[in-house]
Design a protein around this nucleic acid. Structure first.
Length: 229
DNA sequence: TTCCAGGCAATAC
DNA sequence: GTATTGCATGGA
């Protein structure tokens, strides 16, 4: 059992299935989750169920860049109310209206442009996109691309975020200067590609980080740090 | 008031 | 190639 697997097993035992990616249509909450946000579907890996939900996940992955999910959820609801959480509806929005609807998610000028660019790509999409294709879209970096692949397109592509890096760094698994691709490679070499495990692992790391790595001093009382002493 | 949030692109060095 | 900066709202 390698260290990455040990971390996965430990936090899965602590928090259980997370039910990511949250979708507006799902009313379920995750009882072990911090906060009171809804939209999770623990133990149900059948989502997304349709193209509209694929699109919703992709839009959410752009809106949540460096932004709390509670604000993203409000923006998604604004779009939904305007019937703009689908390709046709969003294309019909003026730039001003689009910015207004997503304003609550922050960086709204940038993100409105990013959404337009993604929309152009998505509306003619006929197959599962490659990571390269996604990275070529302005506003889609490695984490957003991997989130889309893993949660919207069901490709077992490991998602690394700032929490992942922080936790692994404080647990001594990586160097502080480790790059996104290095961390991703370490994880994908430690755990064979598996959609459910990759989906849960990223969600569990976020949950764990919210408990132990969101305020300084980071890692205080983190149970994972005791695993490799 | 300050810090933080499920990053990214542009720019500086 | 790596480090820094601007983008922005809302909650703790």
């Amino acid at each position: 059992m390698n260290k990455i697997q040990t971390i996965y097993n430990t936090i899965f035992s602590l928090y259980g299935p997370q039910g990511w990616w949250p979708l507006l249509e799902c009313k379920g909450t995750n009882p072990t989750k911090t906060g009171s946000i809804q939209g999770y579907h623990p133990n149900d890996y059948s989502y997304p169920k349709n193209n509209a939900q694929v699109f919703e996940i992709c839009v959410g992955s752009i809106l949540t860049q460096n932004t709390s999910w509670s604000n993203v959820e409000k923006a998604l609801l604004n779009l939904k109310k305007r019937n703009a959480l689908n390709t046709k509806g969003m294309m019909q929005l003026s730039d001003g209206k689009l910015r207004e609807l997503i304003k609550v998610a922050g960086y709204y000028n940038q993100k409105a442009r990013y959404l337009r660019g993604f929309l152009e790509f998505f509306k003619t999409l006929k197959k599962v996109p490659s990571r390269e294709e996604l990275l070529n879209i302005k506003g889609i970096g490695p984490e957003t691309a991997d989130s889309m692949l893993l949660y919207a397109f069901k490709v077992p592509s490991f998602v690394v975020d700032s929490y992942t890096k922080r936790i692994f760094s404080y647990c001594g698994l990586i160097q502080r200067k480790a790059t996104y691709d290095e961390i991703k490679a370490l994880c994908e070499q430690s755990i064979e590609p598996d959609l459910k495990i990759y989906q849960e692992f990223h969600a569990l790391l976020v949950e764990h980080a919210k408990r132990y790595y969101s305020k300084k001093p980071f890692g205080l009382n983190c149970p994972l740090k005791k695993l490799f002493l």
